[in-house]
Design a protein around this nucleic acid. Structure first.
Length: 554
RNA sequence: GGGCGAUUAGCUCAGUUGGAUAGAGCGCUGGUCUCCGGAACCAGAGGUCGUGGGUUCAAGUCCCACAUCGCCCA
């Protein structure tokens, strides 16, 4: 329908040019949008105002000419009006919009997934928490945002690869091993002072006692320097397994856990440095090696190899990104905590220095989560071991509520997460509102089946019977879905889906309240079942993208 | 001191490349149930979109300055 109107406008503009009313310029991109206000018709275009500003003419006058030039040979339009500063408002003939529902029926679970990606390969890297402790609530938001961004991109035709970067080569890992060793000795009667940087959570003690059980006391006699690596490996391995398990429970599954150590094993960092040096981006100052990130707009150059000869975290990170592109990804998406925003210019510089477009790296910043219980903040600190883990949150509020709540804000804005609110099964909790709409429609379809009224197949229903304003609104909302998905994919903003879902569910609940789907009128019942099933399809497709379940009963 | 981001209803926040009378949820006030699921619906109150300039047919949206807050860096 939209394309039809665009076509009509194109022809009208051409006619105006032929008549000499408009100069023969390349016409701008014509925008036709579904209206929000029924008083503005079904579709509207601002093309007259665009042309007016180009040609320095009165917009309403241009609109008038365009209006007269529209030749609606197929009779799809009831009328066209000029409104406000020069909008063209299109009123579609009664029942004319209902053909839009055929697309839903035809495409089923593919509806709302336009093929934008054409199979291009995208990698999404997220969570990437150091395996020094269980994931906590702060990681949960990044996990969901990454997962859903990946889902959306996959839905619109990209080939998506999900990856977790394990930062397991730094001295934080040493601290982890030392921490476990200290607890191990403590279990054997030694008293220990915990130095700065060590981890004190209960899980450290658990790991120590597991190791004691497995290996006995034999590590006690040895020199600390000799046994720390063993403790580190054991602890990191066990913690990582726990992280994977927690993520699975949360519905997040990665294609690959990529270890930072791999980069050193395959000389990835050395290769990177040679690569950059050949391109002239590396210089020596003092004993350190510097990377000329200022060549790409960073505010100052960055050290990649320290005076002591050790590569920096940044160097490993560049090597990792080089590795990503070598594996053939066209676009690489990183999801970071918002406190890392200062890191963006240098990473962007690195990617460009490696010869890629700036746009090949996209970074999504995820803001901190304020965890609340009944409106009061819950104190957390990783060091002291006081934090609410991802696992605890999922166990307490459930996977669906947790995921949905993390998607209700733009990812770069702060989010209050209230445990009690997320648990409540009431109108304060939006996830149920949307799922309830889904369950209700399932219930209607069950009821219809029980009464022997089959929901009509495509083409069988006379959708032109759907003439109520509420029905038109529902159809428009359904029609908007592919555009919403496209917008969410383009901007990498999953929250657009939750807002859309709330709108759609509200329209449905309202419609349901004041209209009977199943009635004595067989033809009308068929048409309404058809409509309601379209709503169901959209709800299901959208919730699937969010990784939230679609219960048929609640 | 420099950089980035934010400032929209009592609270938490949306506002799609500048479009028509700025929206939603919660909270508040008052209503709806002989009917397919009340985890629902309807109505109402509530706004100088931080302040002041600028750009244009049109600014919450773009530009400049300032204020406040947050984060990063020195």
């Amino acid at each position: 329908m939209k394309q039809v109107l665009v076509k009509l406008l194109e022809q009208s503009i051409q006619a105006a040019i032929d008549k000499g009313f408009l100069p023969p310029v390349a016409p701008p991109r014509i925008e036709v949008e579904l209206t929000r206000d029924p008083g503005h018709g079904d579709y509207a275009s601002n093309i007259a105002m665009i042309l007016a500003s180009q040609e320095k003419k009165n917009p309403r006058e241009i609109a008038k000419t365009l209006l007269e030039g529209i030749e609606d040979r197929d009779g799809v339009l009831e009328k066209v009006e000029i409104a406000g500063p020069g909008f063209l408002n299109f009123f579609v003939r009664e029942g004319g919009l209902t053909t839009l529902l055929d697309a839903v029926e035809r495409q089923g679970d593919r509806y709302g997934s336009p093929d934008l990606g054409k199979g291009r390969r995208v990698q999404v890297e997220f969570v990437s928490a150091n395996p020094t402790g269980p994931l906590h609530i702060g990681h949960a938001r990044g996990a969901v945002v990454g997962d859903v961004v990946a889902n959306i991109l996959a839905a619109v035709g990209y080939q998506v690869f999900r990856e977790y970067y394990i930062n397991d080569a730094g001295n934080q890992m040493d601290n982890l091993g030392k921490s476990v060793l200290l607890r191990y000795r403590e279990l054997l009667g030694e008293t220990a002072e915990f130095p700065e940087g060590c981890y004190r959570g209960d899980y450290i003690r658990d790991l120590a006692s597991e190791l004691l059980k497995r290996d006995g006391e034999r590590h006690l006699a040895q020199d600390a320097a000799n046994v720390v690596p063993l403790f580190t490996d054991y602890a990191a391995g066990a913690i990582l397994e726990g992280i994977k398990e927690d993520l699975r429970t949360f519905g997040v599954v990665f294609d690959l856990y990529f270890s930072e150590r791999e980069l050193y094993r395959d000389e990835g960092v050395e290769k990177l440095l040679r690569d950059l040096e050949e391109k002239g981006f590396i210089y020596r100052e003092g004993e350190a090696l510097w990377f000329r990130t200022t060549a790409f707009g960073d505010e100052k150059d960055r050290v990649v190899v320290r005076q002591n000869g050790a590569p920096t975290y940044f160097a490993a990170d560049i090597a990792y990104h080089r590795n990503k592109f070598l594996r053939g990804f066209e676009t690489v998406i990183d999801i970071w905590g918002a406190d890392h925003h200062g890191y963006i210019p240098r990473m962007s510089a690195a990617v460009q220095a490696l010869g890629h477009e700036k746009e090949a790296l996209k970074i999504i910043l995820v803001q901190l989560v304020n965890l609340l219980r009944d409106g009061k903040p819950v104190a957390m600190s990783t060091r002291s071991g006081e934090f609410v883990t991802l696992r605890e949150v999922v166990d307490e509020v459930g996977r669906d509520a947790a995921r949905y709540n993390f998607l209700m804000r733009r990812s770069d804005s702060h989010l209050d997460f209230d445990l009690e609110l997320a648990k409540r099964q009431s109108n304060e909790n939006p996830v149920y509102y949307v799922q309830y709409a889904h369950a209700r429609i399932c219930s209607i379809l069950r009821m219809a089946a029980e009464r022997g009224v089959a929901a009509p197949a495509a083409g069988e229903a006379d959708a032109s019977l759907l003439r109520l304003p509420e029905e038109t609104e529902l159809i428009k909302a359904i029609t908007r879905f592919p555009e919403v998905v496209e917008g969410a994919a383009r901007t990498l903003e999953p929250h657009r889906l939750t807002f859309y879902l709330n709108d759609l569910a509200a329209l449905f609940h309202s419609y349901y309240k004041s209209n009977k789907v199943i009635s004595e009128d067989g033809a009308l019942t068929g048409a309404r079942l058809f409509l309601v099933r379209s709503v169901l399809t959209v709800l299901k497709n959208a919730l699937n993208m969010l990784g939230v379940s679609t219960p048929e009963k609640m």
